Computed example of a mutant assay.
Amino acid sequence: MKQRSQMETRLVQPLSCLTLSVITSIGLLSPVTAQEPSPATLACEATLSNAEQKPRPKQVQKLAQFADPQQERSQLIQQANALFGQGDLQGAEENLCQFVKKYSDDAFGHFQLGNVFFRGKKLEAAISAYREAIRIRPQYAVAHNAVGMVYASQNRWSDAIAEYQKALEINRDYGDALTNLALAFWQTNKKDEALASLEKAISIFKKQNRNEKANQVEQLLQRIKNSDDNLS
């Protein structure tokens, strides 16, 4: 479990790095319609169909090489992590689509697939992948935060706020969700709430010895304060 937790932390990092980029390019999509194939499912069907026409043996054809299912799960996630980190979104997507097809009950697999879709700007597919992760693991704060970020990427601030708040109901010390919530508050002219959320996030990051993150949020806090001064 410790190894898996560390793996999740590493894989979440590329997503959390998007947090502050939302500051400069702020805003997602409608809920998945019931009884229809989800956007994630449709995206994976298209991806795997293309992969069959142009096989990628290094990533996709390793599914049958492991006798131990747990070993296979771990290896495939590690492969996806490596591909994602290298910027090979197509390879990571093919790998993860195969993974969730075989291990449909793996919440983290769906979550990481959502990260790949999000990075590839397949926003509806990202949302549905994150939602599937939450369905499997309801107390999945990181996935709620991710849904909020996709909503924020399309300026759906009230929806984003709701998702960040769900994440914080699960984990009140979730500094990244607090930072994202502050950005959403700022965009909806709730500056007092934004400042309070940022101050709490800074305190949490410092307690967690995440000093670089604390410094980034402090800079954001000052920018918001300065923007208020310029308007007065």
Results as ranks from 00 to 15, higher is better:
85 G>W: 01
85 G>C: 03
85 G>R: 05
85 G>Y: 00
85 G>T: 06
85 G>M: 06
86 Q>K: 14
86 Q>G: 01
86 Q>C: 03
87 G>P: 05
88 D>F: 01
89 L>Y: 13
89 L>S: 07
90 Q>E: 13
90 Q>T: 12
91 G>F: 00
92 A>M: 02
92 A>L: 02
93 E>V: 01
93 E>Y: 07
93 E>K: 15
94 E>L: 02
94 E>K: 02
95 N>D: 06
95 N>R: 14
96 L>A: 09
97 C>L: 06
97 C>D: 00
98 Q>A: 09
98 Q>E: 09
99 F>Y: 15
99 F>W: 12
101 K>V: 07
101 K>P: 01
101 K>H: 04
102 K>R: 09
102 K>H: 03
103 Y>R: 15
103 Y>W: 09
103 Y>H: 15
103 Y>V: 03
104 S>H: 10
104 S>N: 15
104 S>W: 02
104 S>I: 05
105 D>C: 01
105 D>N: 13
106 D>L: 12
106 D>C: 12
107 A>L: 03
107 A>Q: 08
107 A>W: 09
107 A>K: 09
108 F>R: 14
109 G>A: 11
109 G>S: 10
110 H>E: 06
110 H>Y: 07
110 H>P: 05
111 F>S: 11
112 Q>H: 11
112 Q>V: 08
112 Q>D: 08
112 Q>A: 01
113 L>A: 13
114 G>P: 02
114 G>W: 08
115 N>C: 12
116 V>K: 05
117 F>Y: 13
117 F>M: 09
117 F>K: 03
117 F>Q: 07
119 R>E: 14
119 R>W: 01
120 G>C: 09
121 K>S: 08
121 K>Y: 07
121 K>E: 05
122 K>L: 08
123 L>P: 00
124 E>K: 07
124 E>R: 09
127 I>C: 02
129 A>T: 03
129 A>S: 14
129 A>G: 09
130 Y>F: 15
130 Y>D: 00
131 R>Y: 11
131 R>T: 15
131 R>G: 13
132 E>F: 04
133 A>P: 10
134 I>Q: 12
134 I>T: 13
134 I>R: 08
136 I>W: 06
137 R>A: 08
137 R>C: 04
137 R>D: 11
138 P>G: 10
138 P>K: 10
138 P>M: 10
138 P>E: 11
138 P>V: 14
140 Y>T: 04
140 Y>G: 00
140 Y>E: 03
140 Y>D: 00
140 Y>C: 05
140 Y>K: 02
142 V>T: 05
142 V>M: 10
142 V>S: 14
143 A>Q: 04
143 A>K: 02
143 A>P: 05
